[in-house]
Structures are given as structure tokens and as C-alpha cells.
Amino acid sequence: MMIKKKLGKLMALIGMVSAVPMPPVLAADAPLSEKIHESRFHMPFPVQKAGEKIDVLVRVEKTDRAYGFYLILVEEKSWPIEKKEELRRVYHGWVGGDAGTLPYPIRVRLLIDSVDVENEIHIDQTVSERSPRYGELVNEGRQTWRAETLYLSRLPAGVYRVRLENLSAVPQIDFSTLFAFEADSRKY
């Protein structure tokens, strides 16, 4: 009977502790138990409303090539041509026959901080201009991923905390957008 009472109190205490909000973790204090993503990692990052955020850990391997952080605009092959052209206007700023260039509607803040003590990397930048990087067919040719560069550079090998925040709502974008991290291995 006494053991049941003590176990009951212990369970109540565990429940109370798990309900307490945890303070934010600084990049240098990141717990090692969090999932660390490798190159060719991508995840949804909608830009339709402001305030959307991503906070992930990524691993940069030792290489002579750059690592890139991208915003991917996902084009479905089954779309009508008008919708494909709207996506390409966001990506390039224009399509053939346009009189001018569409201003880039997306504005995001990118923070990259080294988790490793020996690296003191801190990158804080607002991206508000387009920087088309590449397009590639994916999902057995059913989609084209069009990558806008958020950051592309060589980084020392190590683990980095990457945070991305959408600073402005873009409700007119009615297609999927992704955040992507990958080593630059393409031949240009």
C-alpha cells in the first residue's frame, strides 16, 4: 500500500515537471540528444503567413565544397501552365512576355550558429531578394523543385543550429515551399 502511494506521488511529480515550460536553449548549449540532420535534408516551410519558424540542428562534414541553405518552390507537373508561370514569376521575377519584373515577395530571417565550442560561427541575415540556384526533377518527375539560395558558403565541419523565420506573409503563394540543407555537389 505504501509503495502504491509513493509511486502515485512520483507520477504526479513527473506530470507537474513535464508541464513546466522550458526556457529557450542557446545554440552553444544545445542538448546532444536532439536529432542532427545530414545533407539532403528538407522539410516544409510555408510562407503564406508571417511568423512561421524552423529550428533544427545540421551537420556539416569536412569538404572543399560549400553547403547551401535553400527555400524550395515546389512546382507540380500536373498544374496548368498559368499556375506554373506564377511560380516561375516568384522564382525568376518574370516569364517570357512580361513587361517588368515582379518584386520578390518573400522575406525571411536566417540564423546559423555553431554548436561546437571550437567554431565561433554566427550568421544572422535577412533574405529579401531572389537568388535562383537550381531546379531539379523529383518524385519520379512529378515535381520540379526550384531552389532560392538563402545562404551558400563553406563552413567549418561541425554541428550548427539553423533557425529560419518568415518575416512577411505571402498569401498569394498557393504552392508548397520547403527549407532544404545540402552540400553543393552539383556540376555546373
Rank of each mutant, 00 (worst) to 15 (best):
K84M: 09
T126F: 07
T126K: 09
I112E: 01
E129T: 13
G97Q: 07
I81N: 11
G97S: 02
S128W: 07
S78H: 12
N119K: 12
R130K: 10
I112F: 00
E86Q: 12
I106Y: 00
I106V: 15
I123V: 15
V138K: 12
R130P: 04
T126E: 15
L102V: 11
V95F: 06
R88T: 04
V127Y: 02
G100C: 05
D116G: 02
G96I: 08
L137A: 15
E136M: 14
D124T: 08
V90H: 02
S114C: 04
P132F: 12
N119M: 04
K84H: 09
S114H: 01
R89C: 06
W94H: 13
V95N: 01
L87Y: 00
D124K: 09
W79V: 03
P103G: 04
Q125P: 05
L87A: 08
P105C: 01
H92F: 15
G97A: 04
S128N: 14
L137V: 10
E129R: 14
P80N: 12
T101P: 00
G96F: 08
G93P: 01
P132K: 09
W94K: 15
L137P: 11
R133L: 11
V108W: 03
A99D: 14
V108M: 10
S128Q: 14
G135C: 10
R107L: 03
S131C: 15
G135H: 05
L87P: 00
V138W: 10
E85M: 11
W79K: 05
D98A: 07
E86G: 01
L110C: 03
V90T: 09
L102Y: 09
T126V: 15
R107T: 08
L87C: 08
I106W: 00
E136H: 14
G93Y: 04
L110P: 00
S131E: 10
L110S: 05
Q125A: 11
V115T: 07
G135F: 03
V115D: 01
R89L: 03
R107E: 09
I106F: 06
L102K: 12
E118L: 11
G100V: 11
R109F: 05
V117S: 13
L111V: 15
I121Q: 01
E82I: 07
T126G: 05
I123S: 04
I81K: 14
S114N: 02
V138I: 11
G93T: 05
E120M: 13
L110F: 03
V95Q: 07
